[in-house]
Design a protein around this nucleic acid. Structure first.
Length: 210
DNA sequence: CTGACGATTCACT
DNA sequence: GTGAATCGTCAGC
């Protein structure tokens, strides 16, 4: 889909209530096709979400909050719906998640891939890449780098300023959305097999097998 | 205080 | 397919 089909004037921000839904797996699928937007650096950068993963709180061995674990880092996951949870992985990658459900329930959704919609030049500047290709926003580390998201943004509410979500009226055909096990969570035992990863079938920005 | 390691990415074989 | 980069986090002492 060409990037000039949509502009910020026609985007409708998702209210924080949207993220209060009690079923994080439902939300992870529902976010496919929505827009992730950042509006700092005097620039709008945005992409259409094409890959997500749900992390189902205290009963999910793959979740940082498994067994109600509370530490300085995971405390953000117990925040109200629509809070940003950003953490550093492998000492260099900033991974962006959205906290869902009500305060005290540590559900989260990892945004794993976007299709660029606005601000490609700024994304290229941030990533140091020479030109647009599918690696620009493929994989959760690359998503954050392209949109300028860092651990400094953890704890922010996702309502209109800095980082927010939106719809632009474009919907992905339900038949094009497929579910698979999550990536990189082999340590989670049987929970590693749960179909909590959602993606647009065949989309070139999706990480791993598509 | 110490050591092991990760919801990854990329270059290289 | 394999391995390095790189550092905050967290369990254990």
């Amino acid at each position: 889909m060409p990037s000039d089909l949509t502009s910020i004037d026609s985007w409708n921000p998702l209210p924080l209530d949207y993220f209060a839904h009690e079923d994080v797996v439902f939300l992870a699928k529902d976010l496919i096709g929505k827009l992730l937007v950042t509006t700092f650096d005097n620039t709008v950068t945005a992409g259409r979400i094409v890959e997500t993963e749900a992390y189902n709180g205290v009963i999910d061995r793959a979740s940082h909050a498994y067994n109600n674990r509370r530490t300085a880092r995971t405390e953000i996951m117990y925040s109200p719906a629509g809070t940003a949870y950003v953490y550093l992985c492998y000492g260099m990658h900033h991974l962006f998640n959205i906290v869902t459900n009500r305060q005290g329930i540590p559900h989260a959704i990892l945004i794993r891939a976007l299709e660029p919609v606005a601000g490609v030049d700024k994304m290229l500047e941030r990533t140091g890449k020479p030109h647009l290709d599918s690696s620009l926003t493929r994989g959760p580390g690359n998503v954050s780098k392209a949109l300028g998201i860092t651990t400094a943004h953890t704890g922010l509410d996702l309502w209109q300023h800095e980082i927010w979500l939106a719809t632009d009226g474009f919907a992905i055909d339900d038949a094009q959305i497929i579910a698979t096990p999550r990536i990189g969570v082999d340590y989670a035992g049987a929970d590693a097999l749960l179909p909590y990863r959602f993606m647009v079938k065949g989309n070139k920005y999706v990480s791993g097998k598509r």
